[in-house]
Design a protein around this nucleic acid. Structure first.
Lengths: 177, 177
DNA sequence: GCGTCCATGTAAAAGGTTACATGATTAA
DNA sequence: TTAATCATGTAACCTTTTACATGGACGC
């Protein structure tokens, strides 16, 4: 869904922590950020060029290796991303949720498709939960790690809480039909 | 994000319950379906024409009023939508969640922007929760109503559960920072 | 009759995904 | 050396949003 151009802010957010190549930025999307935002390299690479033109970032390459292009936030870019982080979010996201959609259209509580949808959804949520817990284990097993990337920790904890709640709810409804 | 063409299925799902005009379909989006799927009239009207060409739906107008075009699921359309409802959902949606995104990038647990983000989010979730509860009150205050549109009821109950959990979590984190 | 609102329709612009392309590195 | 993989880049296509357009209905 075409939204108000968010991608450059995501990229700048990533660059707040460290300079990155396009590849490294894509890795961020593949792992943690992928939980709540996704993009593809065919968006990111052109975006990096645009952002460089806008002077939000600048590129350089290491002496020994001039193929790898690293990107670095400029002072101006810092301003932009910090301003953006300050703006409050003004509405909740609407996820395009196929599970809701299909369930919504099934009127009969004994329709076997309901049970099917629920069982699959439970599987999906369980898998997601496992993944999230592993991630927490890997990244935040010490208080020090938590304090170093507190926002990341919060978002991970929140996702886990949501999925736990979701799982309980789904199983409860499945059993008490 | 271009997804696999879902809109026609949503429309057919709506038409399962009753024949509709474009306007009536848009009303469904504006109210209940809007919680988990959105569209705009500039998508829906052309889509209706395409679907009619594909013989998934057919149009007719009432004798006394030939301006209003009503759409009706064909037998073929019934097949299509029922097959689709049977297919299990194979992955969880990734909502483009600005709250997660912004929080993610704030490393310092004492950054005042965190508190700000949380307070705003609490407000948003509270409002959403109120709206959902009103909706449940209005639509599902009797067991008969629940049994008549069980899927709709489930989705509404699920949304309420999620938001309740979310609200507790947010408030807890805000207080124990 | 006249202006406004409303249902419907259409067009333009932008975001996002998929597929294809390229050049360099690595592995067999 | 050749094939395969990888990082980067580009193009085509589709979806979605926003804005604009039309024609009838309704109130004044």
């Amino acid at each position: 869904m075409p939204q108000k151009r968010i991608l450059p802010y995501v990229i700048m957010g990533i660059l707040l922590n460290k300079d990155c190549t396009g590849k490294q930025i894509m890795d961020e999307f593949r792992f943690d950020i992928g939980e709540f935002w996704q993009s593809s390299h065919s968006q990111v690479y052109p975006e990096l060029k645009r952002m460089e033109q806008d002077r939000w970032i600048e590129s350089y390459s290491k002496e020994d290796n001039d193929k790898e292009i690293h990107y670095h936030l400029t002072a101006y870019g810092h301003e932009i991303i910090n301003d953006w982080l300050m703006e409050p979010v003004d509405k909740l996201p609407v996820s395009k949720d196929l599970f809701s959609l299909k369930t919504f259209f099934i009127n009969d509580r004994n329709d076997p498709r309901l049970e099917n949808l629920f069982k699959h959804q439970i599987q999906l949520v369980s898998n997601s939960l496992n993944h999230l817990r592993e991630r927490r284990q890997a990244l935040f097993s010490s208080q020090e790690q938590i304090d170093q990337q507190y926002g990341h920790y919060l978002i991970l904890a929140r996702a886990i809480s949501r999925q736990e709640n979701q799982l309980v709810w789904l199983e409860d409804k499945l059993n008490n039909r």
